[in-house]
Design a protein around this nucleic acid. Structure first.
Lengths: 348, 348
DNA sequence: GTGAAAGCGCTAACAT
DNA sequence: ATGTTAGCGCTTTCAC
């Protein structure tokens, strides 16, 4: 590996002091340098193929131009668009992202926050899943710029970007209500995850608002956001809940599990039971039946979070507008249909 | 933001020199320190909450403990498992990954390689898509440890990890052949991408090996690996190619496009035309018909690439075993079925 | 407008 | 076994 060209090399080639070179190459300071000198230096720099050493600059300025991006699991189809959204604003500004997967494990998350701090990240974007994660709040209190996605940290001055979970669930419930459904069940997500909890709450509110039966047995809670748990929760509903004609699932993967169960039991969807998901994951328009779901703006959420973080890093006070709520949309597909008429007489 | 505790702080608190502290905290060097001293120092370190500044250490040692991970697009379902596979070996070793998306654009890729070098990454894992990318080869020649995924760089001593594309296509063709299909078409991927080209070549070889009709009109090339191009290429085949009863698609997204076209034209799959994909993307077991495809070991590929890179960084010569070929598997699902008997008489 | 010098936090000779 | 010294590449005061 050949010697990397440094400011010193440029200084030697131009017969000038390294500090002069440094200034000439810094757009913000280059005004204090004579035009001739500056041209001479920039020419030499590009001739020699100079590239600044960001580690050295970071050490000196305490600004690494790096941000940490913490997500539960990049393998979860929800997060890649968020990551790209983040990168789309950070990269043009000269920031690099260190990506870490927390697996939603508190200890792992705590360790990774430390790892990021050791590397001198200028800020952290935290696509939270856990409802309780003291680590990131502490980091923020210690002065680390932090923005969270999907989650508000209570009592902390941390800007956050969330989807309108409430509106999403309300749209799904209203859609089913419009189709004539009255007894609507909910396959809830894990209640220790923010989205799971928010959506379950939203479901209860939506049911109440429409004066529909709010039997707690119509809500079954999954332990994880995956197909197996969706199936388990759906079976539990079918076995123990009073009759229902629709299932609002807290996310698409739970809905997939619910659909499997319906198929396995020979319950036609949507003829007998309608199903909705949440997130609008890729390819769910291709399954049979195509899943009615709520689409969210992941990339935009990532981009906004990144912009907020840049502002924080730039010294802007977090106060004022902490919250950004992104709109969601109902995507109607084949898994929802009219409430079966045979059942109607039994309506309350 | 409070002052971060440094070696100097520990030195002050324990009344020894910073270099002693540095040694005591370095597992490799701590043997040269008396037990009492070491305990005193490590105690002080944890009491004060010391965390090493990796930027400073990296500047000094020229080892940032950071690697660059270049992928075309994290949004492509193929890559998240690879990224996790990489992280699963790198993170426990203390390495962090800077993730960048190249979008398969040569200029962008070239710039990002520079960005990574500026940040002093110790090595680069390059999940290549482009067949021609001189940039990464140059970086490797300049001494940067590099491992590529999915692609061999000709003439360079760069270890690479690939899937057995040839075997995958051969399995698909053999499977169809076993079902009685004789006239098999290929929806090829972009020929400027390594997988597109390798799979098309493999297809030709497989067809030849089985003495099947090798009409060039039975191969239609997509410009991108996406559903639209898969649809376009499939339509082209249906419109211009001699009759065929099966389509081997170069990846799953092309296959999805092909399936759409078949449905739109009222051609039943697999009754009249069977379809195969490649990659075994998530959820394709849920579509109608479920896609027969080739599963590949993404996470393992990432993990192996990471291990190879660590070895390179550790000074191991790249020579010897440059190549790692990972086995693939045929996953038979509903999109492939027996060759329609009505067509059989027209076999050659 | 440019040079000199100091120092970010750490490691690695070289001393003792 | 510990201290001294120097310096990684850069930025930033402070002189002139």
């Amino acid at each position: 590996m050949k010697h990397r060209v440094t400011l010193k090399d440029i200084a030697r080639h131009t017969g000038v002091h390294v500090s002069t070179v440094s200034r000439a190459l810094d757009p913000a300071k280059s005004t204090t340098i004579s035009d001739g000198m500056r041209k001479q230096i920039t020419d030499a720099a590009s001739a020699l193929g100079y590239r600044p050493n960001r580690l050295a600059a970071g050490l000196r300025t305490n600004r690494s131009m790096t941000v940490g991006v913490m997500i539960p699991d990049i393998t979860n189809a929800l997060f890649p668009p968020i990551v790209r959204g983040i990168e789309s604003v950070l990269e043009p500004l000269g920031y690099a992202s260190i990506l870490v997967n927390t697996d939603s494990e508190p200890e792992r998350e705590a360790r990774l926050v430390e790892v990021l701090r050791d590397r001198g990240v200028d800020g952290i974007i935290h696509a939270a899943a856990l409802r309780q994660d003291p680590t990131i709040a502490r980091a923020a209190e210690a002065g680390m710029p932090v923005v969270t996605l999907n989650r508000r940290i209570e009592g902390a001055e941390i800007p956050f970007v969330i989807n309108d979970e409430d509106a999403g669930i309300r749209l799904a419930v209203a859609h089913l209500h419009g189709l004539g459904h009255r007894r609507i069940a909910h396959v809830a997500g894990p209640q220790n995850l923010s989205t799971g909890q928010l959506r379950a709450e939203a479901f209860r509110r939506a049911i109440r608002a429409l004066d529909l039966p709010a039997d707690p047995r119509l809500i079954s809670e999954a332990q994880r956001f995956d197909e197996d748990e969706g199936a388990r929760a759906a079976e539990h509903l079918l076995d123990t809940a009073p009759p229902f004609t629709a299932m609002v699932c807290a996310n698409d993967r739970l809905a997939l599990g619910a659909l499997s169960v319906l198929r396995a039991r020979g319950v036609p969807c949507p003829a007998e039971v309608s199903v909705t998901g949440f997130n609008n994951m890729p390819f769910l328009d291709r399954i049979e039946p195509a899943l009615t779901t709520i689409s969210i703006r992941q990339a935009e959420a990532g981009a906004i979070a990144a912009r907020r973080l840049i502002a924080l890093i730039g010294g802007e006070a977090p106060g004022g507008m902490l919250e950004t709520v992104l709109p969601v949309e109902l995507v109607v597909r084949g898994s929802t249909g009219p409430c079966p008429t045979l059942e109607s007489p039994r309506d309350l």
